[in-house]
Amino acid sequence: MTIEKDPDPRGLIREAFRMDGIREAECRSIFLDWALGLPMAVDNHAAIRSLIATYQGTVPADHPMLQVLTAALEGEATPRRRGGRRARLV
């Protein structure tokens, strides 16, 4: 399913951009709350791209929330094998 008209219906991300002196840790917490509130059928990456497009150019490029949103699109690191001999034998 594609994103709805408003990727931020509760206004969490919008309010984070309005807060003066907000730090990256607070932005990560707000982002997590926003992400957990998305319906399962919504494409998370499309919603994040929509938010970045909405706010990019209207806020400073070094705003912590913009950095958190951008980092969320980078995805997870490649998983590394963990364990020793036992893990290789299984």
Rank of each mutant, 00 (worst) to 15 (best):
E15N: 13
I22R: 08
D6R: 02
M65E: 03
R86I: 15
N44F: 10
R23A: 13
A72P: 07
G84Y: 14
L38F: 00
W34N: 02
R28Q: 12
E74V: 01
H63C: 02
M1I: 11
D33N: 14
P60A: 14
S50C: 05
I30F: 11
Y55D: 03
F17K: 00
L12Q: 15
T2M: 09
K5P: 10
A16K: 10
G84V: 13
G75C: 00
M1D: 11
Y55M: 06
A61P: 04
E76N: 07
Q56N: 12
A41Y: 11
T58C: 05
W34M: 01
A41F: 11
P64R: 03
P60F: 13
T2C: 13
G75T: 00
Y55S: 05
A46E: 12
L12E: 10
T54G: 05
R85D: 14
T54S: 07
P9V: 14
T70L: 06
R18E: 14
Q67W: 01
L51Y: 09
P64S: 06
V59G: 03
G11C: 14
T54A: 11
Y55L: 03
A87P: 07
P39H: 02
L66V: 05
R23C: 10
R88A: 11
L12T: 09
P39I: 01
V42Y: 12
G57Q: 15
I13E: 02
M40V: 12
E76T: 01
I3Y: 04
S29M: 14
D43T: 06
A16I: 09
G11K: 09
E74N: 03
P64T: 06
C27S: 09
G37N: 04
K5A: 13
D8G: 09
R81A: 10
P64M: 07
R49I: 05
F17Y: 06
F31M: 03
L66I: 01
I22E: 05
L51V: 07
R14P: 06
K5M: 11
F17G: 00
R81E: 02
